[in-house]
Design a protein around this nucleic acid. Structure first.
Lengths: 143, 143
DNA sequence: AATGCACATGAGAATGATTTGCAAAAAGAA
DNA sequence: TTCTTTTTGCAAATCATTCTCATGTGCATT
């Protein structure tokens, strides 16, 4: 199972960076490692609580901040909803948000990546990071 | 002055859609018409208050919602800061955010627009709106 | 295995942006 | 002007997120 491996990789990476691995962080980290979706802080609390009931919402938030600072997770700020989180093992990708269901779909386009860099360069900038969110609705008439 | 024209166009568009033009809305609308930057709700309150001191923050927010619903302004949700607003007279464009100064630069790329639509279509979606923000830093070595 | 201390935690209060309830004020149709 | 429907100001309410602080705990070092 890839999740267990991912968990170990993440924990090890954190340890190397001097981040203490607490009971609560283990719970949250393992939830993130197993998540196939994009949970928000509350959802993470629910799932982590099942593993370690002592986890509090404050700690979920604090841990997410630490994980983000250490490059282990990425915070996704979509419009009008609480931030969602995903692990950063997967290579970079952008998101399509289904405006009807709230579902989040990942995609990646080299062409778009390249174009972005070109445009920024033309204007004298170099991209540090970017964010491309497509708010879309499922097409009725299948292609 | 383009602003006065823009103001009239917006007010007329709103009237046609049955939106009441109140004193407060006039103040807010004219501030938006003149703005060369991307003010947030608080800044709009300050500027609108100079025209009509009776404007309250609640009304600024309520008005912005109305204007957005009627396609007259666009809400820009950047990361970690209050929403900024701009009039939608300008054709659609995306933003480069200078992560050092906070400056916002507008740009538009047909190619990117097209690619986005293609990607969404391939996944069975049609884009309702999108958001592309490039967080970048000015290049030291000029091109 | 015990110790020490810097760091992490839980509970709840604090924050900041935005929204909302309500009674009073005003827009626009008649 | 008058009536009806919206809009407004104010303050209180929300909601996600952060912070305070007293207590608990990793983990490097004995």
């Amino acid at each position: 199972m890839a999740e267990a491996i991912q968990y170990k990789v993440m924990e090890e990476a954190l340890r190397e960076r001097g981040v203490r691995i607490t009971r609560q962080r283990q719970a949250i980290l393992s939830v993130l490692a197993e998540a196939q979706d994009h949970p928000d802080a509350n959802e993470l609390l629910v799932r982590a609580s099942a593993i370690d009931p002592s986890v509090s919402l404050s700690t979920v938030y604090r841990t997410l901040t630490v994980l983000e600072e250490n490059g282990v997770v990425q915070r996704l700020n979509f419009e009008g909803v609480p931030a969602k989180f995903e692990t950063t093992n997967a290579p970079h990708h952008d998101h399509i948000i289904d405006i009807e269901t709230g579902d989040v779909i990942e995609f990646r386009s080299e062409k778009i990546e390249r174009l972005q860099a070109e445009i920024a360069a033309e204007l004298g900038y170099e991209i540090v990071h970017h964010r491309l969110d497509l708010y879309a609705r499922r097409r009725k008439h299948a292609n």
